[in-house]
Simulated assay, not measured.
Amino acid sequence: MTEWRSARPKDMAVLTDWIDSPGTLAQWGGPLVTWPVRAEDLWQQIEVAFLPSFALDVHGELQAFGQLAPRENITTWHLCRLIVAPHRRGQRLGEQLCDHLVAQAINRGATRVTLNVATDNQPALRLYQRLGFASAGPVSERGIQPMARQL
């Protein structure tokens, strides 16, 4: 059975298994998440209690995770900390994850969604472009490209 649900504390242990290096952690979690990543700290570091956080379960196993964060006004929501299980990458789960998060943002009144992507993450960059996201500013010194999509 496949289902979208709210993230749970036990998901953090699975996520930490998917993050294999400080670089991967920095790209995924941003500057507030510290290496080595620890499941018992991750829930608080990524503010799951405060941000709408979603998990895709397939037969009881976590397959994808992502969050929404409100931006400058209630009509812009930011898609963040998107990740797909390593063994499921390339199977269009990233597209399903983005579609689900965008739908959740629309339910919250969004007319625009944003996200950030590392420029060296070409599969993610191609996915976001295919989904209608476009550059929304210059690439940062960390190699992060802000992107946006009008809804």
Rank of each mutant, 00 (worst) to 15 (best):
G143W: 01
T76D: 07
V117N: 03
T114H: 00
A26S: 14
P70T: 09
A118F: 06
V139C: 11
F65L: 01
D17L: 12
T34K: 13
T75D: 06
G66L: 04
Q27S: 12
S135F: 02
G30W: 00
D120I: 00
G30E: 02
Q145T: 01
N116K: 07
G29D: 12
D17H: 08
L101D: 04
L127Y: 06
G94R: 08
A105W: 01
T75C: 07
M1C: 07
E3W: 03
I46L: 12
V84S: 08
R149G: 10
L97P: 01
A26I: 11
R92Q: 15
E3K: 06
N116Y: 07
G66Y: 03
Q63L: 11
W18F: 05
I74D: 14
G90K: 07
A7R: 00
H87D: 15
L56E: 01
A85E: 09
T114M: 02
C80P: 02
D17P: 03
I83Y: 02
F50I: 12
S140T: 14
P146N: 05
V33A: 15
D120Q: 01
R89E: 12
Q122W: 07
G23K: 13
Q91P: 05
A69F: 14
Q145S: 04
Q104V: 02
N107P: 04
C98T: 13
E61K: 09
P86F: 07
W43N: 10
G66M: 04
L25F: 10
E72V: 05
V117I: 03
Q44K: 14
W43L: 11
Q104E: 15
P31I: 01
Q145W: 02
M12H: 07
P31M: 04
L151Q: 12
L127F: 06
G29N: 11
L101V: 01
